[in-house]
């Protein structure tokens, strides 16, 4: 436990040591996504008229779009390339002789990032609710449902991402696969457009895929749109996908380590 705490605190120190870059990146990302969505949907509401589209008023949509980058940061945690980079430069070797599991160390780093991003999520949400008159009010049951969902979604993303990163054992460069993962998650998870705007057949298919569990599901929980049964089903699906990727990841790790020579490129 002490070792785990040490790794966690070390990661927190790393994040805090680049404060300006951290907050600049955060503000740039959130404001640009929110700004583009604001003007886009303002134009759409003006063109078609009416108070709401697919059950979303303009205010509710704006809150959704504010939550997208904030929730994505909590779920995605650490930047891409941290595992593949160590495979390429041979840095993985030192972890193999540590008395702690390599993935436990990496997961602690992921948790450290996520916990800081969770604070940003709360600040962003508080600011929005203080400035805008929103039809939405934050309730304790909604928060209670969202926190375990964020934890499970973060774990699912972490396990899925390490599957992709482990292709570095065989491929020259995996940066493009990890970017592809983020692009796919952003669209298919409901980050670009809420899933309620997709055709019905697409919503049915996407509901069974892991992407929805990473973006749309935590946001809908926070907005109080998820009932108890759907919440349990959602958590079950998240756990099932995490289990599948954990098995495939374990196979990739064992196979990859057999060919790993630690020399680096």
């Amino acid at each position: 436990m002490n070792v785990a705490l040490s790794f966690y605190l070390m990661e927190l120190k790393k994040i805090i040591s680049y404060r300006a870059e951290f907050w600049l990146g955060f503000l740039g990302n959130v404001l640009s996504q929110f700004g583009v969505a604001f003007f886009l949907w303002k134009a759409i509401f003006a063109a078609r008229g009416g108070e709401s589209i697919q059950g979303y008023t303009f205010g509710a949509l704006m809150l959704y779009y504010l939550l997208v980058p904030l929730v994505e940061r909590v779920v995605y945690g650490q930047e891409m390339g941290y595992i593949s980079g160590e495979i390429y430069d041979g840095g993985l070797s030192r972890y193999l002789i540590y008395p702690v599991s390599y993935f436990r160390i990496k997961y602690l780093a992921h948790l450290a990032q996520s916990s800081v991003f969770l604070i940003q999520l709360m600040l962003g949400l508080a600011l929005f609710l203080a400035v805008f008159h929103s039809p939405f009010s934050l309730t304790w049951p909604a928060i209670g449902k969202t926190l375990p969902v964020l934890f499970c979604s973060g774990m699912l993303f972490f396990i899925f991402a390490i599957n992709l990163e482990m292709f570095a054992f065989w491929a020259d460069n995996v940066w493009s696969i990890t970017v592809l993962n983020r692009l796919a998650t952003h669209l298919l998870g409901g980050g670009l457009i809420p899933l309620a705007f997709f055709p019905k057949w697409a919503q049915t298919v996407l509901d069974w895929l892991p992407f929805t569990r990473l973006v749309s599901f935590p946001i809908r929980c926070l907005l109080g749109q998820v009932g108890n049964l759907e919440w349990i089903r959602g958590l079950g699906l998240t756990a099932a996908w995490a289990g599948i990727f954990a098995i495939s990841g374990s196979l990739l790790w064992r196979k990859g380590l057999k060919g790993y020579n630690g020399v680096g490129i």
């Binding site: 759409i44 669209l187 670009l192 457009i193 705007f197």
Partner: peptide, 16 residues
């Protein structure tokens, strides 16, 4: 993704 995005958007509005 860009093509899919605009296809979904134009399910909701005739003009952008």
């Amino acid at each position: 993704i860009q093509i899919a995005f605009y296809q979904v958007i134009f399910l909701q509005t005739p003009l952008l």
